[in-house]
Nucleic acid binder design. Structure first.
Lengths: 330, 330
DNA sequence: TACGTTGTCGTCAACGTTGTCAGCCAGACG
DNA sequence: CGTCTGGCTGACAACGTTGACGACAACGTA
């Protein structure tokens, strides 16, 4: 039973349309009636219904944020960045976890469309092209993180992942390491590819051989990091440094070293990736490649707003930089 | 230009209403026309517009989740719990950060209402009563965490905070400690009150004196934890144990001990609260009171669904339990 | 034959806004 | 004194659904 346009109109003794005009302050209205309407609005605590408005204007002031899992320490800051630029413009954002599962991702996207979101920001884990073709367009822009698509209504925000990987490995090399293994991610993830590529390039450029059996992939969680590192270091004791696909894996590697009686960084140096909050507080503090997650979120949302404002323009990918932060683990 | 009800109707050669009926499968429809309609729906990839539907049914299949800051490690798991029960029922959830600022909280609530959410889950930091009176009701239920309100349409989910605090302090006492200080939170927070109460009770019941100057409050972040612990331990070297309002403060206390050359737990035992992911990986691993954050989120959402299903019923507060997890810091 | 029933289906008016267009009343102008 | 502007306002029809009815067969039943 909140007040409706009609109630306000009645109370102010004007037409519905007139009230609508002062609410959206468009058109020309005499100061007198504007004041009367404003008064009525205040008295009735009227607030326009976004859903009714959405029906006619075809936009809901709503966007969808689809990420792997908010529980992954990488994402909360991203979400925060997105929210912080969305909120001042009156936009609300739907949060969705895809868990990196394709059917789930699809369901979520459909659901978001059903709700009429104006746009979507997505951290994809799978090939999105078919889905994007269906749902994206000038009227419903999509920002995809870390994967460039040349599709109308789609724009990319890219992280300098490969560069980050090179930074990490070069740091290890600069410390004198020559036997550097990699705890990698899952092969279908684009981030995995980029990081492995950076790793290879750095080794090559410094004349170091790439030993395929020293690159071991899998799900990027701490447990697996420990296991893989354990296996790796036992089998190839000559390894003196590990570059991990992400901080969680690096943490696992530290655990493994501790169990094997290897001191970090002296007996085995470890570099992570992402700089999640954990990285700085853990002991030894993790040397890692920082990506500014908050800024990443902000950039995504800004880009989405740009696209919303200029529906027919095409946009170049946006690159967000990374930096190596040297702590004690390497 | 997605397909509308009318398009489907035209294609199937039936009325709009008939299509509506098969979509919502209500009313009786002959198998023949149902099949024809289904076929048309599939061919046109028709999906009903939730916003149009919302206009008439007055519910949007949407809820708002208002929490302090998703970046606070306490919240992501909660959010995950909420989402995991909301999603299978076709509900989407708006995520909002209040930052514990009253004007922000108010703005967010208004915005949520404008969007027509069916219900709200909120982790309050301030007195909510006036706001709740305005926005809550049988038609728009609100679940409030950790603060009981006896208002129509409002239901509480409570954490056994006080009990947790007692558990923590009793553990310390059982270890033989008698000089136990407390790193507290901010006095306006209800969680602070409950934890301090638990601390006092445990001391009293074991015949230990409560020394007011050993209870020091402030913002519950790591930096302040370090500072307060530093001050406390310098001024009162006889203190042998610290109970912290939350894990972040406990982490700060560990830092302080390290700086003062006090070994944890031998020279100074430390117990935290919340069991954030950090707690188990830090060194020394934190003994703390775990609240099952994921379960908390689930309970909130379940309760909200119950309220949605039975608008006029009133609901007793729901209590979620806590448990002491003993690691190495105490 | 006339009259309920039951199973199907359609018509019409909402829901709370905004776009489009037309109308009205001053005042300026010829 | 008529006519034409320009500022201001209102009527009306959308937007895409659903709810409340009503209609109309086919089928017994009295």
């Amino acid at each position: 039973m909140p007040a409706k346009l009609r109630d306000v109109a009645q109370r102010a003794g004007v037409s519905i349309k007139t009230v609508s005009r002062v609410v959206n302050n468009q058109g020309e209205i005499s100061e007198a009636t504007r004041q009367r309407v404003l008064k009525a609005i205040a008295e009735l605590r009227y607030r326009p219904s976004k859903v009714a408005r959405a029906l006619v204007t075809q936009h809901t002031d709503t966007i969808g944020l689809v990420l792997g899992d908010i529980t992954n320490p990488f994402f909360p800051e991203v979400a925060r960045g997105v929210l912080d630029v969305a909120e001042p413009r009156g936009y609300n954002v739907f949060l969705c976890n895809s868990d990196g599962e394709l059917p789930r991702e699809t369901r979520i996207l459909e659901s978001l469309l059903d709700h009429g979101v104006d746009g979507i920001i997505i951290f994809p884990t799978f090939e999105l092209e078919p889905a994007l073709r269906r749902l994206a367009g000038p009227e419903r822009p999509v920002v995809v993180v870390n994967r460039p698509y040349d599709l109308p209504g789609v724009s990319a925000v890219m992280i300098h992942t490969r560069r980050g990987a090179r930074l990490a490995v070069e740091h290890l090399i600069a410390q004198g390491h020559t036997a550097i293994a990699m705890l990698a991610g899952q092969s279908h993830e684009i981030a995995h590819l980029a990081r492995v590529r950076g790793y290879r390039e750095a080794l090559c450029e410094h004349g170091l051989p790439v030993r395929e059996e020293w690159i071991v992939g899998g799900v990027p969680i701490q447990k697996r990091g420990r296991e893989s590192a354990l296996a790796l270091l036992t089998r190839y004791p000559e390894i003196t440094a590990i570059f991990a696909y992400n901080d969680l894996l690096a943490l696992g590697a530290i655990e493994a070293c501790r169990e094997l009686g290897r001191r970090v960084p002296d007996d085995c140096a470890i570099v992570g990736f992402d700089d999640i909050p954990l990285a700085s507080v853990v002991n030894p503090a993790l040397t890692t490649v920082r990506v500014d997650k908050y800024e990443l979120g902000r950039q995504c949302m800004n880009r989405l707003f740009e696209m919303l404002a200029h529906p027919d323009q095409t946009f170049e990918p946006l690159w967000v930089d990374v930096e190596l932060v040297v702590r004690t683990s390497a």
